[in-house]
Simulated assay, not measured.
Amino acid sequence: MNKVFFTKYTEQNLKLPFVLYSLGLNHRQEYINRPSGLPFFQWIQAIKGSGVLEIDTKQYVVEEGSGMLFFPNVGHKYYGVSKEWIVHFMCFTGYGTKDLFENIGIKQSGIYKLTDIEKVEQYMEELFFIYSLDSRMEMYDFSRVLYEILLEIVKSTSLLNEKSLLNQNKKVHLVMDYINEHFKEPIMLSELAKMAGLSKEYLCQLFKKMNGFSIFDYITDVRLAHAKILLINDRNEKIKNISRWCGYEDVSYFGMVFKKKEGMTPAKFRELH
């Protein structure tokens, strides 16, 4: 069940070392674009599904078990790429927050991997329970539990930004290598996504962002490159056989794709070369 609340804070509350602004549990995350960020810290924890974070002109995948930490006034954009992206989130501030992050060496926004997800989720549930009590002392209890959450995040996180980017590059190259080796066979997007450990939607986005062309364009280019070699080197071979050897069971479809890409039929290409 989606649970969201915003706290009633005062000038007195802002003197606390850790101050909670808002909390959301099991929130179905929508598309967010904040060019200037927000004036406080944010922690957004992926519970189900996956999304994409765009920050500092770079793009990263946010998977279950990881979270996005945003420092105040840092521009960012994030959105789901799976059918459903469910997150917990909290917005917070306080002089203790900045000191805690600085002392531990956390100096930038980014994606962080949790090693004890359940413990952090339990603390966030406790925050909601405190809110439900509607106590006059709730801000002090919020501060106490928020401190426990931040300690847990600090203890169990590792920054994923550069590692994640390198890992994404490896996944795209893995897919490209597979296409180069298996172009003669039927290639399903679902199989490529499973092999890369990504959703179909995110794999397509990532592949095009890194290469400038789509997965389907790449499959076609690889197949036609091999077809052109065979057309030139095996002049007596039937075009329908070359079509089949390059992953096209339907020779008519092969001819249509070839002409669209090369501006001529396979037979004409062979004649000119």
Rank of each mutant, 00 (worst) to 15 (best):
M256H: 14
D141K: 12
K171D: 10
F18E: 07
D250H: 08
I86R: 08
A193Q: 05
G247Y: 00
E181K: 15
Y248G: 09
Q12H: 08
N26W: 08
M176E: 15
K58E: 15
F40Q: 00
H273C: 06
E191H: 12
L203H: 06
I117T: 13
L189G: 13
V172S: 04
C91K: 02
L203R: 03
G65I: 00
G105R: 04
N161C: 10
G110H: 01
I149S: 02
D217A: 04
M139I: 07
K170A: 14
Y79P: 00
E237Q: 15
V251Q: 07
L150Q: 07
G65V: 03
Q122G: 11
P266Y: 03
R244V: 11
V251T: 14
G212K: 10
E84S: 13
G255C: 11
D217Y: 06
T97Q: 07
K119L: 15
L20E: 04
V120P: 04
S252E: 09
T7S: 15
Q12R: 13
G212H: 14
E125V: 10
K170W: 02
W85T: 00
C91H: 07
V120T: 08
N73M: 11
K209A: 13
I149Q: 01
K77M: 02
K83N: 12
K208N: 13
L25P: 05
